[in-house]
Amino acid sequence: MTIETAGEDAEAAALLVGYGFRAKLLPSRDDDYAMLVRRYEEDPDFGFLVKRVAAGLGLRVLGVSMRSGIVHTALPNSVFETRMDQFVRQARVREPRTAERVLHGIAHLAVAALCFPRAEDLVDDGRTGRVWVSEVDRYVRSVCDTLAERAAEAEEDDDPPADAPELERAWHAYRNRPEVAPTKKRRAGYAATRTVVTNTLTYLCDYGMLKSMGVDPERREQMYRSTHRYQLHVRELAATRAYQELLDLKAPLSAERGGLSVTDETTLYDD
């Protein structure tokens, strides 16, 4: 292999990694993108190079396919890592950021759990989850109720200890917020939990994780469906402590969604 050929391969690998930042662009809409995805699938050496280029940029490749394109996530301390306080700033939330990080973090976990409530959903590439603002809010409140009951049974103080699990420290903040807090102009207030959920769903849509499907005629509210890109990210999320705590609660879901569970960690990743 000549230096020129090696350079061309490296440039192509970097180009494919770059497509991963264009979350809403799919290979079916871009011939160059599709060509690179096919090369990744057919040429193991090129696939290895793509992963190494991504790693050098502080990214990990979660999957590459014609359906989703390339999907990668930021490694810890990467320049591309998006922390919850950054999300709060992007959402232009006016409340104190410490509290909002907690509330929006809970909403993100709830959306993931509702889209993929069973172990088999996480590994089924044909799975498409659906969520609504009201459903996410109801689910989070059911988790809050479960945690409140647990605290009451243990005769704990109203304030959880500093070393309590993440969700046990978070439920107070969400439970004490109103579901809807209209402003004088009859708009949803920033303090309302449904506003928190709406901000979360909008953010996920902006990054190609969800798609807004318009108003559901039965529920008369906006419906969102998950993308394959989101499924790959939830597989990554499933290994986190807070997500596992949420699964361990076994909070009630509707009959059509089944119970919450997660597969063994070794089955959650493609590599």
Rank of each mutant, 00 (worst) to 15 (best):
R187Y: 07
A191S: 14
G105Q: 10
A119M: 06
F116Q: 00
H233A: 14
K184P: 12
L210W: 07
R194S: 05
T128Y: 09
T195D: 01
A152G: 06
Y224V: 01
R235D: 06
N176M: 10
Y174N: 02
N199I: 01
C144A: 14
A151Q: 13
A152H: 11
A107Q: 05
C205R: 06
R101N: 12
Y139N: 05
R177D: 02
S142Y: 02
E120F: 08
P182E: 09
W171L: 02
E149Q: 12
A152L: 13
E149G: 14
R118G: 06
L109S: 05
R219M: 12
D158S: 12
L201Y: 02
Y139T: 02
A112Y: 00
H228G: 10
R177W: 05
V234Q: 00
L201W: 00
V215S: 01
R130S: 11
L204H: 01
Y190F: 07
A181R: 01
Y230I: 04
A148Y: 06
V215M: 08
A151H: 10
C205T: 15
E120P: 03
H233D: 01
Y190M: 11
P160S: 09
E149P: 04
R186Q: 14
T195L: 07
L204N: 01
E236D: 15
Y203L: 10
D137T: 15
D206N: 08
V102C: 00
V196C: 08
E221V: 06
A110D: 07
A99Q: 10
A148F: 08
D125L: 05
D121I: 00
L109A: 10
G189L: 07
R169Y: 09
V196L: 09
T146C: 07
R229S: 05
A113C: 09
R127H: 08
Y139Q: 00
R138H: 09
H228R: 15
T193D: 03
W171I: 03
L114G: 04
G189N: 09
E166N: 05
G129S: 04
Y207F: 15
Y174T: 03
Q222S: 10
Q222L: 13
R225V: 15
N176Y: 06
E156M: 13
